[in-house]
């Protein structure tokens, strides 16, 4: 019970910081919207073919933007020394990780939810369905699990702007596939049963990497 409270406190702290600075959500939203706008005229996507391209554009823009946002997020924590402070506190490393994960997950989930209507408007495609929430949820969980782990790992690297995407994007590629496939089923109006496999795959992926990340996290931070 106490650990749950600690997790909530860490996540709440991150969110309060985010509300004041608006670093991550604005980075993700700004970058992904730019990608969408660039693609609308460079690819010259017609309405009838948009369902073929849009899911791929959507998830790759989100993934790139998230890598950017995470970099910013942890760089400022290291600069101010707050992360070291957190590590010094008498809290288990697993709990710190879960707290950080929860914060990052909220940013990503909110950003994807805001990106959905933007995509709908720009590409003339219908994503307003309850299943969209489910897809965004399962994909966001996986992205933020590995994203948090890798961002903490690479924050001290000299070339972290390239290092984080290089680790992050190949590792999450199965999840991106799941997101793209289920969303493209959604855009052509299929039922949930059509992309059930992908959702259950994504859930299994989330669980697997969540357990592994929690288990491996304490090796990645200094003692």
């Amino acid at each position: 019970m106490k650990s749950l409270k600690t997790i909530w406190l860490i996540a709440k702290n991150d969110m309060a910081l985010e509300l004041r600075r608006r670093e991550v959500v604005l980075t993700i939203l700004g970058f992904s919207t730019l990608v969408f706008i660039i693609f609308t005229f460079t690819l010259d996507i017609k309405t009838y073919e948009s369902q073929k391209f849009v899911p791929g554009i959507f998830w790759s823009a989100i993934a790139f933007a998230y890598a950017l946002g995470l970099n910013k997020r942890f760089a400022s924590e290291i600069e101010n020394g707050t992360f070291e402070g957190l590590l010094l506190a008498p809290i288990s490393r697993d709990i710190i990780f879960i707290g950080k994960f929860l914060g990052n997950f909220c940013f990503l989930f909110i950003s994807t939810l805001i990106s959905l209507p933007i995509t709908t408007i720009l590409f003339n495609i219908s994503l307003f369905r309850i299943e969209s929430l489910l897809i965004c949820l399962v994909i966001s969980v996986g992205l933020s699990t590995l994203g948090t782990l890798f961002a903490i790992m690479t924050v001290r690297v000299r070339a972290k702007e390239i290092m984080l995407p290089l680790l992050f994007l190949p590792a999450i590629s199965p999840l991106l596939l799941a997101g793209v496939e289920s969303m493209s089923e959604l855009t052509i109006g299929s039922n949930y049963s059509e992309f059930k496999t992908w959702i259950s795959f994504a859930v299994a992926y989330d669980l697997l990497f969540f357990v592994i990340s929690v288990f491996l996290f304490h090796y990645t931070v200094q003692e």
């Binding site: 590995l146 782990l149 590629s173 596939l177 799941a178 795959f201």
Partner: peptide, 14 residues
């Protein structure tokens, strides 16, 4: 370790 665990997962997804 993550790379080695991820490889079969990627194959499955692909």
């Amino acid at each position: 370790i993550i790379g080695a665990i991820d490889t079969p997962v990627i194959y499955f997804a692909a």
